[in-house]
Design a protein around this nucleic acid. Structure first.
Length: 1012
RNA sequence: GCGGGGGUUGCCUAGCCUGGUCAAAGGCGCGAGGCUUAGAACCUCGUCCCAUAGGGGUUCGUGGGUUCAAAUCCCACCCCCCGCACCA
């Protein structure tokens, strides 16, 4: 009968709500506090979000069934700038965004107007996400829900920041950001066109001094000379060490340059654009004159450090928007420079005078020869730039492959190159590796004021508004000082004491703790809490979400507290136990009892027992979470566990807008039902791996569970009895038990054990695998055995029902809705969500029966192999079981191997030594016979060893405990099955009657089989 | 570059810490048979190569090594993915 998944979902969702079973309050039971990173409500949830929350919910439900008082709450993170940016775009009628909202997110067009207010966007998606969580069956205590713009929460964050400041962990300073000059605000990846992350590079500005005397242009008036006097040309470079190879400077002849006083001291020539960019870097730039690049062509400058003179030459590739608009030319090592020089020379030789410069300029150009000053494989073959250009077959300045040639040469020289061994060229830097030389030259020149530095964007970036971005240095920025040594030590201490699942990710935490530096913790705009001591700043979103788990306790009481009268002393008492509750009660206008109650509740639930999130939060949120807890709370309230999971793929592909494979969660729920989605998300991979979500998988799970559901109905119908169906119920019918009944119950104990172990380590994939597939397989074997004997359905039900009972319980954390339904069909009391997790009954484990059943399976496997190879249709199958002496020998070898002696020669030696060995191993049986058996049958000894070694260790010890298995009895019990299966007569006997030559084939647990 | 994770039989993924259970679990896909008016679904079997008796051969990124025995331990190398910030 097909299942109406959505009706079942609705029914149990309502029932849970009504019974309020997920609301958790302090009790005498042990508590377990699970939290997940709360969502940022700027879009609806999709399948990918579901993994982390589902995992946490499965964890919560499991712990609840294990008897813990589980608190699993949820909040909503409104803090941040993306929502603000969205609302701005809506206000500007951004077509793309509006279409996304309406067509993809399903927002009604009439709502769009309200989205000009960022809070409305957050509220809308908040509601949407919450509904999705309820539909997914997450066992959340919704009384504790809050948002990060609730006034009381703001108070809480204010308190947090004051605590941090008191501890000296907040500092102020400057730091660079990507900046849009038009919007007057920082830009990060999602604020830029094409979502480009603004990347910074630091140029070294090498100060070339203009030789004013070289200005011998016709109108040599004194004004002009004055302007040029002492002028510095800062050439921007990333390769300071190549200063020794400079042959000239490049200026763009058509670009506008500025002569300006920088920081009130030096007079610099830089492009107009650079002059502006320098001001964002907080340089004081006062422009005195404008000048075209071409006016300076031909003048000489002095190279700092080496005091050589080189000319200024024209190059159109110089970009005034990049660096300073002044480039130093190192033709031996820079393919661009080399090619530009070749081109210039060629045009002069051809008599093409496109520039109209003075004759001396041309003469200067013709004189220039590259100066090779880095030695590497390339320099062995000539001028390195020339070598690489030839290899690429480049012949023009505008060839795009020049970029590749440049990268190749740069990286080769960086890793493998050394400066020239000739001190006449490179002074006392000779033979240094390029990497070291670069740093040293830079530092030396900075020290002697021969150079400066300048931050710039590595690649041009545009703001969403279209304006080109710049690097800006923000002054007075507030930081959380994560570089504090003592703080790091405590964070490590906390991490060491924590459980990290999976363990593999621990090293990453260790690294991040060490690597973290000062972190800007406030912004000028966005939703959130104001910085308590400087209201122009808003606390940034990754800083107001680090200890909020504690707030879930307070949130339950939020309605009873007036945020206006709550002050820091309230939080001091609730969270730290500091202060006098009576006076706090008075000043905060709260009853003392209430304050005490909240404090007690906090102490009951804290610390966090398990924090869940996706692995993307490891290098930020999760590590901040550790840091801030150790800063604020005493050791006994530090978090106990972090669980990290990988992401979700759709049909093996990353989810992305461009692939159009992002499935909204609620849509998926409507189409496939929550239970199947939950299981699909968790079954395809263990924690850290990316999980592959496929519809094929989902459908197959759903159908499997439908079958299980039908089996429940079928077998409950077969027995009239009601009440709870458990081990006791089964035991009461002991007289009915046959071998397969005992077997299935024994198997069940193992499965419970293994599944419980898997759940304890949150190996949910393994757990689901047991529940969905392994249990199915066992059930099928059982049915096959029982039916072949013609046992009645209600006979079978006696064994099947307790098995189903355990299966439904264990499956319920994964598929809660359908399991409630099956639970009620099976006659379970109350909700399965609140039922007990099954525990094993050791008395029901029967190794002899298990070995017996696997003997039957092994025989069937062998029969099938033989049939397959011989392609015969047997009319009779005869099974010959090993005779007594083989068992003696087998068990002897088994014991020897179980002692850890596994080498053939050693085992043989032990056997042959017989009783005289005195080791105790061979003293129980008739020693002399044993020696004879072993000596006469070395090949049998070898075979037995192989067979024992290829048996699972647990089975080896249980076989040793069992001793001689009555194989004839076991196999006789299976004759009905065998005869039915192979449709022929089956006979079982001991091998006595067998011809001597064939006797070698039968071994214990491996009977000889003959088909005729 | 720094740090982390990973390379397994058509695909996805277990196994590796604690060597023998491993030709290697499970799922998906594919093939055959059963069921069915037919199909879907379901059930059974098969799915590296060879084999008319339960066997043999070659496999777990590549190349070495340790061991009676290596997917698993050691060494070297190749390749792929993720993070490197002020942003949720």
């Amino acid at each position: 009968m097909p299942i109406d998944w959505s009706a079942i979902q609705r029914r149990w969702m309502d029932a849970w709500d009504e019974a309020r079973i997920f609301e958790s309050d302090p009790s005498t039971k042990d508590k377990y506090f699970i939290t997940v990173a709360y969502p940022y409500p700027n879009s609806p949830q999709h399948i990918g979000h579901g993994r982390t929350y589902t995992l946490a919910d499965v964890h919560a439900r499991y712990m609840r069934m294990k008897g813990y008082n589980v608190l699993f709450p949820m909040g909503f993170h409104y803090t941040g700038t993306p929502i603000l940016a969205m609302s701005r775009r809506i206000a500007e009628h951004d077509k793309e965004l509006v279409e996304t909202f309406v067509n993809i997110y399903g927002v009604k067009p009439e709502y769009i107007e309200y989205f000009k207010d960022p809070v409305n966007i957050a509220r809308y998606f908040h509601a949407e996400i919450k509904e999705g969580m309820r539909e997914m069956g997450y066992s959340i205590d919704w009384r504790r829900e809050f948002t990060t713009i609730d006034p009381l929460y703001n108070r809480f964050i204010t308190w947090q920041f004051k605590r941090l400041k008191d501890k000296g962990l907040i500092s102020q300073g400057s730091h660079p950001v990507g900046w849009c000059p038009r919007d007057q605000s920082p830009v990060s990846q999602h604020d830029t066109l094409g979502d480009v992350e603004p990347e910074f590079i630091e140029y070294v500005l090498i100060k070339f001094m203009l030789d004013a005397s070289s200005n011998n242009k016709s109108n040599n008036n004194s004004d002009d000379a004055k302007i040029m006097e002492g002028l510095i040309l800062p050439a921007a470079t990333l390769r300071a060490e190549t200063v020794f190879g400079v042959t000239n400077l490049w200026l763009n002849p058509d670009a506008e340059y500025a002569i300006a006083v920088v920081d009130g001291k030096e007079r610099w020539l830089v492009s107009m654009d650079a002059a502006e960019r320098l001001t964002y870097l907080n340089r004081d730039v006062r422009i005195e004159h404008n000048i075209k690049g071409r006016e300076l062509i031909g003048l000489r400058t002095r190279v700092p450090l080496i005091n050589r003179y080189v000319p200024i030459l024209p190059a159109v590739f110089v970009d005034p928007k990049n660096g300073t608009g002044i480039v130093m030319s190192v033709p031996a090592h820079a393919p661009y420079d080399y090619q530009a020089l070749i081109d210039l020379k060629a045009s002069i030789n051809a008599g093409i005078d496109t520039h109209g410069y003075a004759r001396v300029v041309y003469e200067e150009i013709m004189k220039i020869e590259p100066i090779v000053m880095i030695e590497s494989e390339y320099s062995n073959a000539g001028v390195p730039a020339s070598v690489v250009i030839k290899r690429y077959g480049i012949s023009r300045q505008d060839d795009p492959r020049l970029e590749d040639a440049t990268n190749e040469l740069y990286s080769h020289e960086f890793y493998k190159g050394r400066l020239s061994s000739d001190p006449r060229i490179v002074m006392d830097y000779s033979s240094m590796g390029v990497k070291d030389a670069r740093e040293k030259v830079r530092d030396d020149m900075l020290k002697r004021n021969l150079a400066d530095t300048m931050l710039d964007l590595a690649k041009p970036v545009r703001c969403r508004c279209g304006t080109p971005c710049v690097v800006k240095i923000l002054e007075d920025q507030w930081f959380i000082n994560y570089s504090d040594k003592e703080w790091k030590r405590l964070a490590h201490q906390c991490l060491d004491s924590m459980q990290i699942l999976p363990e593999e990710i621990r090293d990453e935490f260790v690294y991040v703790i060490d690597w973290l530096r000062e972190r800007a913790c406030a912004r000028r705009s966005g939703l959130g809490t104001k910085l308590p001591w400087d209201e122009n700043w808003i606390i940034e979103s990754l800083s107001d979400s680090v200890i909020y788990m504690a707030y879930y306790i307070i949130a339950k009481y939020a309605k009873m507290l007036n945020p206006d009268s709550i002050d820091d002393r309230f939080f001091d008492y609730i969270l730290l136990g500091v202060g006098d509750p009576s006076s706090i009660a008075e000043s905060c206008k709260v009853s003392k009892d209430l304050i005490e109650q909240i404090r007690e509740e906090f102490l009951y639930y804290y610390p966090v027992d398990s924090r869940h999130s996706g692995r993307d939060l490891v290098p930020n949120h999760l590590t901040f979470f550790i840091f801030n807890h150790v800063a604020i709370f005493p050791k006994e309230l530090w978090p106990r566990q972090i669980v990290v999971n990988g992401s979700v793929l759709m049909d093996g592909k990353k989810m992305s807008k461009s692939l159009g494979n992002i499935i909204p969660l609620r849509k998926a729920i409507r189409e496939y039902g929550s239970d199947a989605i939950r299981a699909s998300l968790l079954i395809s991979a263990e924690l850290l791996q990316d999980a592959d979500f496929t519809l094929d998988m989902l459908k197959s799970i759903r159908e499997k569970v439908e079958r299980l559901y039908n089996i429940c109905i079928e077998y409950v119908g077969k027995v009239k009895s009601s009440g709870s169906i458990d081990h006791q119920w089964y035991n009461d019918r002991a007289h009915k038990r046959e071998q397969e009944d005992i077997w299935l119950m024994s198997r069940l104990q193992h499965i419970i054990k293994e599944t419980t172990d898997a759940m304890d380590r949150l190996r949910v994939r393994e757990a689901l695998n047991n529940l969905l597939y392994i249990m199915d397989r066992d059930m099928q074997w059982y049915m096959k055995r029982a039916r072949s004997k013609g046992r009645s359905d209600d006979d079978i039900a006696y064994t099947i029902l307790p098995f189903l009972d355990a299966r439904v319980r264990m499956l319920s954390p994964f598929m809660p809705f359908i399991c409630e339904e099956m639970w009620s069909i099976l006659g379970g009391k109350g909700f399965v969500a609140m039922a007990e997790w099954p525990t094993i009954a050791p008395s029901m484990i029967d190794y002899t029966v298990e070995e017996g059943e696997s003997l039957i399976m092994g025989v069937m496997e062998d029969v099938e192999k033989i049939i397959k190879v011989t392609t015969m249709k047997p009319s009779k199958i005869t099974i010959y079981v090993a005779e007594g002496w083989k068992w003696e020998l087998y068990l002897r070898i088994l014991r020897i191997i179980n002692e850890g002696i596994t080498k053939y020669s050693d085992v043989m030696r032990m056997l042959v030594r017989g009783t005289s060995s005195g080791s105790g191993l061979g003293s129980d049986a008739d020693g002399s016979d044993m020696v004879k058996y072993a000596k006469d049958n070395p090949d049998i000894v070898r075979k037995m060893m192989e067979s024992i070694l290829s048996t699972p260790p647990e089975s080896r010890s249980s076989r040793a405990g069992i001793g001689v298995l009555d194989e004839v009895r076991v196999l006789n019990d299976a004759i009905p099955l065998l005869e039915k299966e192979y449709n022929c007569k089956v006979e079982v006997m001991v091998e006595d009657s067998l011809a001597k030559t064939k006797k070698k084939v039968a071994l214990p647990y491996k009977p000889a089989i003959y088909l005729t």
